[in-house]
Simulated scan of single mutants.
Amino acid sequence: MLGKLLGILFGSMIGAIPGAIIGCFIGHQFDKARRRQQGFQSAFGSGASQAERQTEFFQAAYAVMGHVAKAKGQVTKEEIQLASVMMDRMNLSDEQKKIAQEAFRQGKDADFPLLETLRKVRFSAGRRRDLLQFFLELQISAAFADGDLHPSEIQVLQTVAQELGFTAQYLQQRLRMQEAAFRFQQGGGFGGYQQQGQQSGGGQWQQRSTASQLNDAYDLLGVDKDADSKTIKRAHRKLMNEHHPDKLVAKGLPPEMMEVAKQKAQEIQSAYDLIKKEKGFK
């Protein structure tokens, strides 16, 4: 509206009624461009607001991670180690590590505002579902840090999933996939299954190990072991698209977390490569 008024005023100055009409048209175009710019800033944020949202996402992720770790009563050394490993993966500066550690500590407090924190994360992410999924998977990873999923941890994860807009069925699927990913890593599947032939224990041990890792690879991709190549390829493409580091950062993932996304993508690729080798397709 502001553009139309200015356009009419300017047009009247140069040509009465015809000038006013031309000015109104120019002003209308100005208003359309202005609305588009405002819409873009509202959806994706200006540089400063985007940086603020990334900082909030980063702090919330570590705070909720601390809350999940505390759910069963006592934070284990494995959970503390996981938080430290993730900090190392992100190549955090000393100042950033202090922020992450403080957020993790706050999440362990009895009065930590879990629901409020999750609602802020969901509001900030908007329709960017991949970001919310990444956030949920971070919390699932924290729960699996010691290789055991406690009922109280499941309860917290159910709350996290619900507040972020995910169904109970979706959470169960991701829990199964993360459990398989944990075993896959422990078995050397994450970039390590190629070294099986160097392990001791004989061919029978290697055969059992390979079968176990294959099962975990299928579960990691969320497909049945009898699935055809088309189904497996589709599942692989979907997961890789969901965890593509560049796409996640473009949608608002803090740059510090890009390395975590890269390693998750590598884990998915390793499982897919193992299945491809077994099934014999390209």
Score class of each variant (00 low, 15 high):
L2R: 15
L5Q: 12
L9T: 01
S12V: 13
I14A: 14
I14L: 15
A16I: 03
I17K: 14
P18M: 03
I21W: 11
I21G: 03
H28G: 06
H28F: 07
D31M: 05
R34V: 09
Q37A: 09
F40S: 04
Q41N: 12
S42K: 15
F44M: 08
Q50P: 00
R53W: 07
R53L: 07
Q54R: 14
T55Q: 15
F57G: 01
F58D: 10
Q59K: 15
Y62I: 05
H67L: 06
V68G: 03
A69Q: 08
G73R: 14
V75E: 08
T76Q: 04
K77Y: 08
E79F: 06
E79S: 04
Q81W: 11
S84Y: 14
M87S: 06
D88C: 03
M90A: 12
M90W: 08
M90C: 07
N91S: 01
D94F: 02
A100V: 09
Q101S: 10
E102V: 03
F104H: 12
F104T: 07
R105G: 00
R105N: 07
K108D: 00
D111I: 09
D111R: 15
F112Q: 09
T117H: 07
T117G: 03
L118K: 13
R122Y: 05
A125W: 13
R129E: 08
D130Q: 15
D130T: 09
D130R: 15
D130A: 13
L132P: 00
F135V: 06
Q139P: 00
Q139W: 03
A142I: 09
A143N: 07
A145S: 14
S152E: 15
E153Q: 09
V156W: 11
L157H: 04
V160K: 06
A161F: 05
E163M: 09
E163L: 06
G165C: 08
T167G: 05
T167W: 05
A168C: 01
Q169E: 13
Q172S: 12
Q173Y: 03
Q173S: 06
R176T: 01
M177H: 06
E179F: 02
A180H: 10
A180R: 10
A180Q: 10
R183P: 00
F184N: 04
Q186T: 12
G187C: 06
G188H: 09
F190C: 06
G192W: 12
Q194N: 03
G197M: 08
Q198T: 13
G203V: 08
G203K: 12
W205L: 02
Q206L: 15
Q206W: 11
Q207P: 00
R208P: 00
S209V: 09
T210S: 13
S212L: 10
S212V: 05
Q213I: 13
Q213A: 10
D216Y: 12
A217K: 13
L221C: 03
K225P: 00
K225H: 09
A227H: 08
K230N: 04
R234T: 02
H236T: 02
E242M: 04
E242F: 01
H243Q: 08
K247S: 01
K247E: 02
L248M: 14
V249E: 13
A250V: 06
L253P: 02
P255H: 12
E259S: 10
E259N: 13
A261M: 11
Q266G: 02
Q266K: 12
Q266M: 07
E267C: 01
A271M: 11
I275G: 02
K276G: 01
K279I: 01
